[in-house]
Simulated assay, not measured.
Amino acid sequence: MVNQNDQIEQQLFKMLRRTQAIHVRTASGDVELERSSYGILCLLSDDGPQRLGSIANAFRLDPSTITRQVQAVVRLGLAEKHVDERDRRATVLSLTDQGAEAVAEARAHRRQMLDALLHEWTKAQRTEFLASLTRFNETVDSWIEREDDADS
């Protein structure tokens, strides 16, 4: 008999593969966004300009990794760096108009795909899925915070 957590792990991995397929199939417009670029641009769109350290923390990645990814979106003209007025040693990243347009377009395509994928689901099923997914993400965030506190 297969352990339920084993099945959940398998389904999570399958979901990761499927989200990559969604990412590839929803690429559109003049700019093809890599997954990491899309994530950074969505963070900026949702939460506003960010210091590079905050972006690294949000994705739980090494600052050098984020620096490379940020350079890519700046090179594409989708984001721009500014000196942080509160701490002139720090850099803040913000969306450009082109970046905001690229995020809006990519999100629209992804949401159309989700509408097509979930069109046979009832409102109750979508609500249950959203609640479970939200709870899972909150649980992971809490676990990461506890692990970070334990490492400090």
Rank of each mutant, 00 (worst) to 15 (best):
A108Q: 06
S45I: 00
S37D: 14
F59K: 08
E85K: 09
A124I: 10
D46N: 12
R51F: 02
R88L: 13
V31M: 08
F59S: 03
A131C: 04
R25P: 00
R60C: 12
E138Q: 08
I144W: 14
R126T: 05
G29Q: 01
L41P: 00
S28H: 07
V140Y: 13
R89V: 06
T122I: 08
A90M: 12
E101I: 03
V92K: 10
E32G: 05
A27K: 15
I144E: 11
W121R: 10
N5D: 14
D6H: 09
T122H: 08
Q71E: 13
V2Q: 15
L117D: 06
T19N: 09
R51W: 05
T122P: 10
R60K: 14
R68W: 05
Q20V: 11
A116T: 07
S94T: 09
T19S: 11
L61H: 14
Q125V: 06
E80V: 13
R111M: 12
D30L: 04
A27M: 14
D115F: 05
V140M: 11
R88D: 09
G53S: 15
M113Y: 07
Q112G: 07
S28Q: 12
E147M: 08
E138T: 04
W143V: 06
L43H: 08
L16S: 13
R89L: 10
R88H: 09
C42T: 05
L41C: 04
P63V: 12
A79Q: 08
G48V: 00
N3W: 07
A58L: 06
D6C: 04
R126W: 05
D47Q: 13
D84L: 03
D151W: 04
I40D: 02
R107A: 00
R25S: 03
Q50P: 02
L95Y: 04
M15D: 08
P63C: 05
S36C: 04
E9K: 13
L76V: 01
S64C: 03
E145A: 12
A124E: 15
A106E: 02
V2N: 13
Q7I: 14
Q20W: 09
L76A: 15
A90F: 06
A56P: 10
A102V: 01
S54L: 11
D97F: 01
L130Q: 13
A131K: 10
G48N: 00
Q98W: 05
V103E: 01
A56K: 09
R25A: 03
A100C: 01
V103T: 02
V73T: 06
P63I: 11
G29N: 03
R86E: 10
Q112P: 00
R68C: 03
E105V: 01
D87S: 04
T91R: 14
G99E: 01
R110E: 02
F129W: 14
R51H: 06
P49T: 00
L16T: 11
T65F: 14
D149C: 01
D30A: 09
T127S: 15
E138H: 06
L33D: 01
D62V: 07
T65I: 15
V2W: 13
L78T: 03
E147F: 00
A108S: 07
D6P: 03
A79N: 11
T96R: 05
T65Y: 15
S37T: 09
G99V: 03
H82C: 06
